[in-house]
Amino acid sequence: MKLFLTPVWILLKKEFRIEFRSRVAINGLLLFVLVSVALVNFSVGYMKLQVPVFFGLIWLCLFFSSMYGLSRTFVAESDQGTSDFLRQLARPSQIFLSKLLFNLVLSLLIGFVLFLSFFFFFEAPDIHWGFFIAGLFLGTLAIASTTTLLASIVAQADSKGALFPVLSFPLMIPLIMTLVTWTKNCVSDDTIPALWEPFSVLIAFIGVTTTASILLFDFIWD
């Protein structure tokens, strides 16, 4: 197990080092998040939003921001022609795990910045913070586990264009419905029974996507 995880750890450190060396990606991403929240604020900020609308807008912004950020890890490898070196260094599943963890950290970052700015710019409803943050964590985990495999597919395609959002959004439709249900239920009083269903759906979703991604990545990476 330790032998398996060492390359994952090394690759993950490499991802962070590259990210912090340029900082272009991360700063661009943060600005993207802030601008999108400001855009939402300019369009509907003058009125008090209903609870489902408020959370729907948050998750929609998160989805679009992650479309901008999460395809980078693999696309950068194929742009710089470094994929072949990676192939020499580690097994496909190790590479995939490191990219998945990196994307998870990135999407958690996006998520927290987005939520903080939403609660800063808008009049937020009263919520159970513990459940809400758990939902945020599960949601970003599900987004990362769904999109990482698709990013590796997009990196191999010839005309990339808008391919990443086109491939990802339809697969995330069940996700956004579940997440909006979750956050909507964080407002009500008897939270726990109402959260059980979206919780089990999210766990199943994350399990299915992660397992299928790790199994399928071998075939894409060859």
Binding site: L149, L150, I153, Q156, A157, L167, P170, L171, I173, P174, V201, A204, F205, V208, T209, A212, S213, L216, F219, I220, D222
Partner: peptide
């Protein structure tokens, strides 16, 4: 063929949710 097969398998396992 291999990319679209991978996408097809991935989306089919998510179909039950939909």
């Amino acid at each position: 063929a291999s990319l679209s097969a991978a996408y097809n398998l991935f989306s089919f396992v998510l179909m039950p949710f939909l």
